[in-house]
């Protein structure tokens, strides 16, 4: 029984990735581009989900991790001319360092205080990007140079101006994130994190060092978010302070909640649903964020577990 569920889980996730792979051959151009963005933002939401969905820590500051990746990759590519793969690693690295430091400090708090502290640190990060406008060009942002639009890796030439390549690169990174998330949440670390979410004092009593575990969760979550940011910068060749605003922190929360916090594929489903909701709403009205507001309220009132969370509760209890 357990064996078959195990394989059901694996088959399901492979099928989801395969579906996305096949989609590129049937989707019209616009939706191919849109799905590329959706996949990158879904990686961001999956990073967020690691902390919020599995560990139960609500952060309102994940935009700073996304921005750390964005600037870490973008600025090194812009100023030092680092090649795309190296800049990508630099972006992930800056996210790792930032989330480690932020985790060390802000994990001294919990609950509402944790939310507010992360929000404030993110605000400081945003102000930092605008304070150093000489380098970041603040709100205006920087366009990555032509040299950062292609790279050679292992003897293969990659041209990032190609929409097909961008789609498949995002897909590969998304698949990697899904795999990592699955490995973690189905392993001992994931079970310990869920234990913290459900009842932290009891987890402490069982002998777990919950601070260390939570720190690992923050760092993992921040690093994955930073990877999304680095990907965004390098694929779309633009970095700007707008990505560090609180709105992006809220979006990560929203994507996760909509798709289902604490489910592996939930953030992907949530990101796609929200992206298209906004996209369609914006063709009717300038007030398209109204759709976001209404969605949030309805979700929290009637589907607090989100799309996949509700499905898991009603029909598929084995969904990870």
């Amino acid at each position: 029984m357990i064996q078959s569920r195990q394989s059901a889980v694996i088959i399901l996730h492979i099928a989801a990735i395969l579906l996305l792979f096949v989609l590129q051959f049937v989707l019209p151009d616009y939706h191919q581009l849109a799905m590329t963005r959706v996949m990158v933002l879904a990686i961001f939401a999956m990073g967020y989900n690691m902390l919020f969905g599995y560990t139960g820590l609500l952060s309102l500051g994940h935009a700073m991790f996304f921005a750390a990746g964005l600037y870490g990759a973008g600025l090194t590519a812009y100023y030092f001319g680092w090649s795309v793969p190296v800049a990508f690693v630099a972006g992930i690295g800056s996210g790792f360092v930032l989330s480690l430091v932020i985790g060390l400090v802000s994990l001294r708090t919990s609950g509402v205080a944790f939310m507010i502290v992360t929000m404030m640190f993110a605000q400081v990060a945003y102000l930092t990007t605008t304070y150093f406008t000489d380098y970041t060009r603040g709100e205006e942002g920087l366009v990555l140079p032509q040299a950062a639009r292609s790279f050679d890796l292992l003897g293969v030439h990659f041209d990032l101006t190609s929409a097909v390549l961008r789609y498949n690169l995002s897909l590969v990174l998304l698949a990697a994130t899904v795999a990592i998330t699955l490995l973690i949440v189905r392993g001992p670390l994931g079970r310990a994190l869920v234990a913290i979410r459900e009842n932290e004092p009891r987890t402490v009593m069982l002998g777990y060092d919950t601070f260390r575990l939570k720190l690992m969760a923050v760092t993992l979550s921040g690093t994955i978010s930073a990877m999304a940011g680095a990907t965004y910068a390098l694929l779309f060749a633009y970095i700007g302070a707008g990505f560090a605003t609180i709105q992006y922190s809220i979006e990560a929360l929203l994507f996760t909640l909509l798709g289902g916090a604490g489910t592996v594929l939930g953030p992907l489903v949530g990101t796609a649903a929200m992206f298209y909701l906004i996209d369609i709403a914006s063709s009717y009205t300038v007030a398209y964020m109204l759709a976001v507001g209404i969605a949030l309220v309805l979700l929290v009132l009637f589907f607090p577990k989100g799309i996949l969370g509700t499905i898991r509760e009603r029909w598929l209890p084995w969904l990870p």
Partner: peptide
């Protein structure tokens, strides 16, 4: 499951 994934967009259309 695949049905579920594309459900939002079919709802929307």
């Amino acid at each position: 499951m695949t049905d579920k994934i594309i459900k939002p967009s079919s709802l929307i259309s």
